[in-house]
Design a protein around this nucleic acid. Structure first.
Lengths: 342, 342
DNA sequence: CTGAAAGCGCTTACAG
DNA sequence: CTGAAAGCGCTTACAG
């Protein structure tokens, strides 16, 4: 009737609880024949271990460290806030969350934080990766110490990380093009692209995807080469103001990086009728307001809440060696217009 | 250092475990003064009950029944499939999922299934609601029997249901208009609307939202009155073919119901250059193919996986009287273009 | 009104 | 190589 337990297995296999436990957890010191007997009993009964009882018994607490970039980037601030929320909920699931902030785009600093997490006894580390040899080295060390590693938002190429949780940035760029191209169709003119830095991997990927689709499907719309605003509002404002002044035929703008505040400032300064269609990334108080005011047309987003939740689920499963549902880490690129704002 | 337990509380309050348990679970038979002493100890220690240990001890298994419509509707078939997947995962969380299929749009049948779930000892019932007095009555009975009720996808007005998990259909209609309006701007012409039935609540709401935004923001585009295809492909095909023949100025189509297969058939029959822009609901193998082939421009979607997961979380929290995060039940209306398909 | 003891399904020393 | 006993943090009869 009810679920079979270790006791049932022990009885059927005619061994003690300890032996069942040994087989169940792959500890050695059990004769092959006995192992077989136990496994047969498990199969016969359809035994599935109760992981909560196991954790209770082990007094196991999952110790998970998040290492994320510091700084003014509002996406990262939202991420940090999300982690606060989860920290409380997670405790009920025997999960202790520790957050470490590191300087952005600093491989050395990140690597140091990873080593520190290891010293602090982390069972797993979730990090927003910066590409760097030091980081890859540190990740290898963690894995060697049987500490699970998951990358979040930004992946680390050719590394030993167990999983990546985030969006596909090439697709995100393609999606932006699909929207902006349709929005601008029928109007002759060109598209301006604003990036943070072409040294950052996700920005490169977004640009790639965007240009692919624009060339293939909306070739009547010309593309200006990207300007790099370093994700800083003031620079984005200055650069875009300049672009708009020098090119009177801009019908669309795609900002694939940060600094949306500056973008809006530049747009607010020109005549409403002359404003281009605008697609940007990351939902914040500012981009939300710009959508509502009709200054931005669409905002692409990765759901931070979902990303953190997925990272935790994956981390627990990785630690427990439970098979992982392939969809869990796949974060969908969401599209927000004014009317489907959450 | 580690989390305080009932033992710590008992020691500090100078009472037995049983008394701590009584206070913790609000059972009576404890003097006010003793209660106070226990509560003070809990507060002092920052005690938080370990719900997994509690469930283990209670041998509690959450028995959750899902009641969903039967029939060919592919959205509902996907929902049923999703429940299969969750059933296996949920067992590890001491949750037993039972699925009952009922005839669609049949209040009496639904009400009967609800009573049956109660008889079968459900702790909670999750249902795709059909508006009906019998259903409201059955829900009241469930609540009276302390069985939690959550509505999924389609809500039940003025009922005693504990929570609704699904999207805001007015917003969904507004979102469709925001997209289709932008896609069609610059082209003079009119928009055709296809509905399943104006007797179904979510369709009514979608139409409402759609017309609101079209009138307010894209008034240069005329709207045809909706045709009702009963969510059946053949009827949708016939109706739309007729509409396109009688109106040569159709630049956009919004199908807010089912039968997308028929819609596509009708479109395939006309010249590529003359095809309207198309926005529909629900991602299926067919709508996905139509996106990829460029016949449909956008598909609006509710994430079924997320809906089921949210319903389960909410149900468990409802049963345990744990406070519920307001965001959990709120399913976002997702927008899919060809390039952000999952 | 209060408490001592046993048990939920597993794991962990310890003993043989 | 194998087993008996105690314990994880709670709850549940049962006794007083």
């Amino acid at each position: 009737m009810s679920r079979p337990t270790v006791n049932d297995v022990a009885r059927v296999a005619n061994v003690s609880l300890s032996t069942v436990d040994r087989v169940l957890n792959g500890r050695d010191g059990v004769r092959k024949v006995t192992q077989e007997r136990v496994r047969a009993a498990m199969a016969q009964l359809g035994f599935e271990r109760d992981i909560m009882a196991a954790n209770l018994s082990r007094q196991r607490i999952y110790n998970i460290h998040f290492v994320i970039p510091d700084g003014p980037n509002s996406f990262m601030r939202n991420l940090a806030a999300e982690l606060e929320t989860h920290a409380r909920i997670a405790r009920r699931d025997r999960t202790e969350i520790t957050v470490t902030l590191v300087p952005p785009f600093d491989g050395r600093g990140l690597a140091a934080a990873l080593r520190q997490a290891r010293a602090a006894g982390a069972d797993g580390v979730v990090m927003v990766a910066t590409e760097s040899a030091e980081v890859r080295q540190a990740v290898s060390e963690l894995r060697a110490a049987e500490i699970q590693v998951v990358t979040l938002v930004s992946d680390l190429s050719a590394s030993a990380r167990g999983y990546f949780v985030g969006i596909d940035n090439v697709s995100a760029g393609r999606t932006a093009a699909g929207l902006l191209g349709r929005f601008c169709q029928g109007r002759a003119g060109r598209i301006a692209i604003v990036a943070g830095s072409m040294l950052v991997r996700d920005h490169v990927e977004r640009r790639l995807g965007f240009e692919q689709v624009m060339h293939a499907e909306f070739s009547e719309l010309g593309l200006l080469p990207p300007v790099e605003g370093g994700d800083e509002a003031a620079r984005v404002d200055a650069l875009l103001t300049n672009v708009l002044r020098e090119n009177s035929d801009i019908v669309g703008v795609y900002n694939l990086g940060g600094g949306n505040h500056g973008l809006r400032a530049a747009l607010d300064r020109i005549d409403v009728a002359a404003r281009p269609r605008v697609v940007v990334h990351e939902l914040t108080a500012q981009t939300r307001a710009a959508l509502q005011d009709g200054v931005f047309d669409a905002v692409l987003q990765q759901d931070i809440h979902k990303e953190v939740a997925s990272a935790l689920v994956i981390m627990r499963n990785l630690i427990e060696a439970v098979p992982i549902d392939a969809r869990t880490g796949l974060i969908h690129t969401e599209i927000f217009l004014r009317d489907n704002l959450p």
